[in-house]
Simulated assay, not measured.
Amino acid sequence: MLSYQHAYHAGNLADVQKHALLAFMLDYLTQKDKPLSYIETHAGRGLYDLADEAALKTGEAAAGVTLALPHFPPAHPYRQAVEAVRARFGATAYPGSPLVAAIGLREGDALHLAELHPQEHAALTATMAGWGAHVQKRDGLEMALAITPPTPRRGLMLIDPAYEVKSDYDQIPRVMGQIARKWNVGILALWYPILTSGAHKPMLAALQAAFPEGFRQELSFPPARDGHRMVGSGMFVVNPPWGLADEAARLKALFAKL
Rank of each mutant, 00 (worst) to 15 (best):
R86I: 11
R88G: 09
L50W: 04
L56W: 01
T30I: 10
F72R: 01
D52L: 05
L47G: 02
L47S: 00
E40Q: 00
A75K: 13
P77R: 09
V100W: 14
G90W: 13
A63D: 07
L105Q: 11
Y38Q: 04
D49C: 04
E60D: 15
H121S: 06
E83K: 10
P77F: 14
E83V: 13
T41A: 14
L36T: 02
L29H: 08
G44R: 00
A51Q: 08
A101H: 04
G46W: 00
T92Q: 12
P118T: 10
E60K: 06
A62R: 05
L56Y: 01
V85E: 00
V65A: 01
E107F: 06
M128L: 10
A122T: 07
M128G: 03
E60I: 08
L116P: 01
P77T: 13
G64C: 03
A63V: 11
Y38I: 01
A62I: 04
A123G: 04
H42S: 09
A87Y: 08
T66C: 12
P95R: 12
E107M: 02
T58Y: 10
A123W: 00
L99R: 01
E120F: 11
P95T: 09
G90I: 15
L69V: 05
Q119W: 14
P73G: 15
M128K: 05
A110Q: 12
L47T: 06
P118G: 11
R86D: 14
E120I: 05
R86C: 13
G96S: 09
A61F: 13
G46D: 02
A110L: 13
K34E: 06
A61E: 04
K57A: 15
A123M: 01
L111A: 03
A81D: 11
P118H: 14
P74Q: 10
Y94C: 03
T66P: 01
E53Y: 14
Q119M: 08
A51R: 05
P70W: 12
L29K: 05
E83F: 11
T127R: 01
R88P: 02
T30W: 15
I103H: 12
E60M: 14
K34G: 04
A101S: 07
G96R: 02
A114R: 03
I39P: 02
L116R: 06
V65S: 01
P70Q: 08
R86A: 12
Y38H: 04
Q119R: 15
K57C: 12
P73M: 08
D33L: 04
